[in-house]
Amino acid sequence: MAKLALVTGANRGIGFAIARELALRGLRVVAGVRSAEKALQASTDFEAAGVKVEPAMLDVADAAGIPGALAEIERINGTIDVLVNNAAIMIDGPGGFGASLFDMTDDVFRQTWNTNVLGPAATMRALLPGMMARRFGRVVNLSSRAGQLSGMGSGFPAYRVSKAALNALTRIAAAEAAASKEDVKINVCSPGWVRTGMGGADAPRSPETGADTAVWLATLDRDGPSGGFFEDRESLPW
């Protein structure tokens, strides 16, 4: 049977493009979405795109509810072999990319952290033990150059902090997986500046271009890298 992939936040943008491409490559794909309304729309959109992708309810902002939601997805579809943590938010407030640390509120930090860090952490904690026990797994976390410590600057601080934390979380999980000596690979990638609801209409990249590196990492063979940070299939400095 084909490998099963779960892509979070897959009802639009980069997540939709990743899910579609994985389905075209022959994987069985589940699209994690936050609501029944989004699931219904996603079904229609994937059908129109010519692929079979099963929507499933998964709110990554609710870390406590993630293990139960994942157990239900696996009960219906089988064990998850590939996890793409794509869902994320950027709500740094007025000024957007120019938002200042001094304008941030605790609530903005909390909401951003819950979705962009605790959500991926909870999905990995729930799914990685099974991947290691079955001796196969691929995890791809969608990050951003905004999370690079080597180039860290001002602007949208809650988002920057969350992506830096996601990068660190990826390295930690990859090190633990490597210790098992099984074929489990965990990487993080930047899609670049993409035309999405978050990136805006002026971004130079299409969702398909932004999805390419994530799809590559999700379908790595046994000799592929683990514990790396990539954009356009090239390694980035942390």
Rank of each mutant, 00 (worst) to 15 (best):
M1Q: 13
M1V: 12
A2M: 14
A2E: 15
A2W: 00
K3Y: 07
A5L: 05
A5G: 02
A5Y: 03
V7F: 07
V7S: 07
T8I: 06
G9H: 06
A10F: 11
I14C: 07
I14W: 10
G15Y: 11
A17E: 10
I18Q: 11
L22F: 07
L27Q: 10
R28K: 15
V30D: 06
A31S: 13
A31F: 10
E37K: 13
E37Q: 15
L40F: 00
L40E: 15
A42K: 03
F46V: 00
E47F: 01
E47P: 00
V51N: 06
V51S: 06
V51W: 11
E54W: 01
P55V: 01
A56N: 06
M57S: 14
A61N: 04
A61L: 02
A64N: 12
G65K: 01
G65E: 04
G65Y: 03
A69S: 14
A69Y: 03
L70C: 04
L70Q: 05
I73V: 14
I76S: 13
G78M: 04
I80D: 10
I80L: 09
D81C: 03
V82M: 08
N85R: 07
N85C: 11
A87G: 11
A88R: 01
I89P: 06
I91S: 11
G93V: 04
P94D: 12
G95T: 10
G96P: 05
A99S: 15
L101N: 09
L101G: 04
L101S: 15
D106Y: 12
F109N: 04
F109Y: 14
R110A: 15
Q111N: 12
Q111M: 13
Q111Y: 00
T112I: 08
N114P: 00
N116K: 03
L118V: 04
A121Y: 14
M124Q: 09
R125S: 13
P129Q: 11
M131Y: 03
M131N: 03
A133T: 13
R134W: 09
R135T: 14
F136S: 04
R138Y: 08
N141W: 09
G147T: 05
M152V: 14
P157F: 11
P157T: 08
A158D: 04
R160G: 07
S162M: 08
A165V: 08
A168F: 13
A168G: 15
L169A: 13
T170D: 09
T170Q: 09
A173H: 06
A174N: 08
A175C: 05
A175Y: 08
K181S: 14
E182V: 15
I186K: 10
I186R: 06
V188P: 01
G192D: 10
W193E: 04
V194S: 05
R195T: 10
T196H: 10
T196F: 07
M198E: 05
M198K: 05
G199L: 04
G199Y: 08
G199K: 01
D202H: 12
D202Q: 13
P204Y: 09
R205S: 12
R205L: 15
S206C: 02
P207W: 03
P207S: 02
E208S: 14
G210F: 02
A211I: 04
V215T: 09
V215D: 05
L217G: 01
D221F: 03
D221P: 00
S226L: 06
S226W: 07
S226A: 12
F229Y: 14
F230S: 02
D232Y: 03
R233S: 12
E234S: 14
E234T: 14
S235N: 02
L236S: 05
L236V: 06
W238G: 01
